[in-house]
Design a protein around this nucleic acid. Structure first.
Lengths: 339, 339
DNA sequence: CTGAAAGCGCTTACAG
DNA sequence: CTGAAAGCGCTTACAG
């Protein structure tokens, strides 16, 4: 790899000048011809500034990390794409880490910033972690923005409009004529789950209906857990005629359980999920979903992070644009027996 | 962040000594008590060596990158986990990049190594790229190992035993009594696709059967494309009674198309896929698959990369252990009409 | 057993 | 308009 010194020698200038023209220093006054020689030399030698040298001098790595608990769902790809695009636009490199380690990312965060490998983080918490534990772990550090989930006290976050998502899903079912609408929710400690349930509750309330405890589960999003939840829901009496599942992967599991239980969908029960992903078009029946703007969450999170790194105050953003979008497929329909 | 100088001062030693005890220099002879003071000081100040300083001095970043074309499939998570584990064991940080850019990763590779941000790469090529183009892009650089797919001339790769995978899938169908077995394969330029087809062909041949051109498609792995392939296969006459789909995501698409076409699975057609992922248990019917050791590919790839970086000759590895594994679910059965 | 010094590649005030 | 020099934090041969 060519160094600045070599470029300078080849162009017949000092390294100072070489550095300045290559970095586009606005205070630099130079003959066009000199500048030209430097640029040409850099091109000839295929020069890229050594990152360690620059980082050492600037005390800035120009790298950001995205830390997520689960990399195995297509949803993550949207988040990553958004974060990567924003990073690229601002001339930063984006690294990726998993936070499924014991300390839920705290260790990783400390190590990466401690070493100066990255300037800041976008962190998606794992549901295993309590608000308190998370706050202790990451404190109110401007170098960290939380994504998807937030805590009561910590500043610096960007989340989906989960209330609107839960509401839209529920309203769709209500509009179809359902009156017995259940919810397969996330775990209690998850604020995502709480906000989606809030949307569900509000929609019910607006329709003059009351939330029934027997019709909401708060066991989590994994396919197996949601499958068990669906079975228990259908065992209540009267059973619901429609279910909103707070997460698409859970909905896929619920569908399997319902089918195995002999239920016709949507004849016996309608199912709608929050979040969309390609698989939803390939379940049986194809799953009606509410698409949430996860790309935008990733995008805005790195924008916010970079702003905070530049000294701007921490913000807490709810992504309302684009709004949650109903993707109509075949798992929802009018209730069979208008009660 | 504390620096080495601060540690040294606090411990009352020179930075040389501090550096050496912290790095466990075996040539260092020191009083246990001195060593103790340094360790304590580092702990007190929560010291982590600044990475840029070290990288600059050592001309080694101790970071590796994994570059993949698609991050949105659960298969990728296995590859990543393997690569991350191997990196961690060898005290390296693993970064992630997508290669779905114009230059299919060439740019990214050049930039990251050019800057010295990473010491080497594990690269999964995109199928969009020809062997020739890939070879030109990455040449025979010891800092790059290819994963999943390889090219005729380039050295340094680790791939699955795709022949065995294709063979196992086909043999399962044959053992069930099928004689009209079709293949939904990948694109022609993909060597993965070629090897899987080879396994299919061999299994047919061993059973005294000949491959029929009308029963093999080579259109690719995406769910939509495989769906179209399934439709066209079922329109041949006689139609196949069983299909091996060379990729699980494609199989999910094929299942949807067959179901929509009114075919009973496995009554009218059996379907088996190569690769397993959680979704396969939630399709309708649940999909029989051949599980391939993708975690191990990731793991061995970084081992190989680190060896190459240390000067070992390039190798081309086929992961045979664990062997492809049949995961029996409900999409395969005996043919309805024993012809 | 321990320390002073050089140097990795870079940027930037400062001097001319 | 251009250059010499300092210094970011680290490791390591070398000297004592």
């Amino acid at each position: 790899m060519a160094t600045l010194t070599e470029i300078a020698r080849r162009a017949g200038v000092s390294v100072s000048v070489a550095s300045r023209v290559l970095n586009g220093d606005p205070n630099l006054r130079t003959r066009p011809e000199t500048r030209e020689r430097v640029v040409q030399a850099a091109k000839d030698l295929n020069y890229t500034a050594n990152y360690a040298g620059r980082a050492l001098r600037l005390a800035r790595s120009k790298a950001l990390a995205l830390i997520v608990p689960d990399v195995s769902t297509p949803l993550f790809a949207d988040l990553l794409a958004g974060a990567a695009d924003a990073s690229g636009e601002q001339d930063h490199t984006l690294l990726l880490g998993r936070s499924d380690r014991v300390t839920a990312g705290g260790d990783l965060v400390r190590r990466l910033v401690g070493e100066g490998r990255v300037d800041g983080f976008v962190l998606q918490r794992s549901d295993d972690l309590s608000d308190q534990a998370l706050e202790n772990l990451v404190a109110n550090d401007a170098r960290i923005v939380l994504v998807a989930s937030r805590t009561p006290r910590r500043r610096g976050s960007v989340v989906l409009d989960d209330v609107a998502g839960g509401r839209l899903a529920t309203e769709h079912l209500l509009a179809l004529g359902h009156r017995r609408v259940a919810l397969i929710g996330g775990v209690e400690r998850s604020d995502i789950a709480r906000r989606r349930e809030q949307g569900y509750t509000e929609a019910l309330h607006d329709a003059g209906l009351r939330k029934r405890d027997a019709w909401v589960t708060r066991l989590g999003y994994s396919p197996d857990v949601a499958a068990a939840a669906a079975r228990s829901l259908m065992a209540t009496s009267p059973a619901p005629t429609a279910i909103v599942v707070a997460n698409v992967n859970g909905a896929i599991g619920a569908l399997t359980a319902l089918r195995q239980g002999g239920f016709d969908i949507p004849g016996d029960v309608s199912v709608i999920a929050i979040h969309d992903q390609w698989m939803a078009a390939h379940t049986w029946p194809p799953l009606t979903t509410v698409k949430m703007p996860f790309y935008e969450v990733g995008y805005l999170a790195v924008r916010l992070l970079l702003d905070q790194l530049a000294g701007a105050p921490a913000e807490d953003i709810v992504v309302r644009d684009p709004a949650p979008l109903l993707i109509l497929r075949e798992s929802t329909g009018a209730p069979n027996s208008a009660v």
